[in-house]
């Protein structure tokens, strides 16, 4: 059973990582240069934090909607 939980947690983390990379690349790297410059790295760090904030906000909103829908039934 623990193994099932670990597998699900790993899959969840991979999904988050993949989507976050996609979104933050789009937001922070306008024209890819020869290196990730300082401002791009700062943008990536900030974008990651905000993406995880957004994920948590969305999770709470979805959860409360589910509870409201269940109460209506």
């Amino acid at each position: 059973m623990e193994q099932v939980k670990v597998q699900i947690a790993v899959a969840n983390a991979q999904e988050l990582l993949q989507r976050m990379t996609d979104k933050c690349f789009k937001k922070c790297i306008g024209k890819p240069g020869s290196t990730l410059d300082n401002s791009e790295q700062k943008c990536i760090a900030m974008c990651m934090d905000r993406y995880m904030d957004a994920w948590n906000t969305v999770s709470r909103a979805y959860n409360s909607r589910l509870q409201r829908e269940r109460a209506r039934m």
Binding site: I8, A11, N12, E15, L16, R19, Y51, A54, W55, V58, S59, Y62, N63, L66
Partner: peptide, 11 residues
């Protein structure tokens, strides 16, 4: 897991 997958899509 299904809930989390849906949260990924919404986000």
């Amino acid at each position: 897991a299904q809930f989390q997958a849906q949260v990924h899509n919404f986000t």
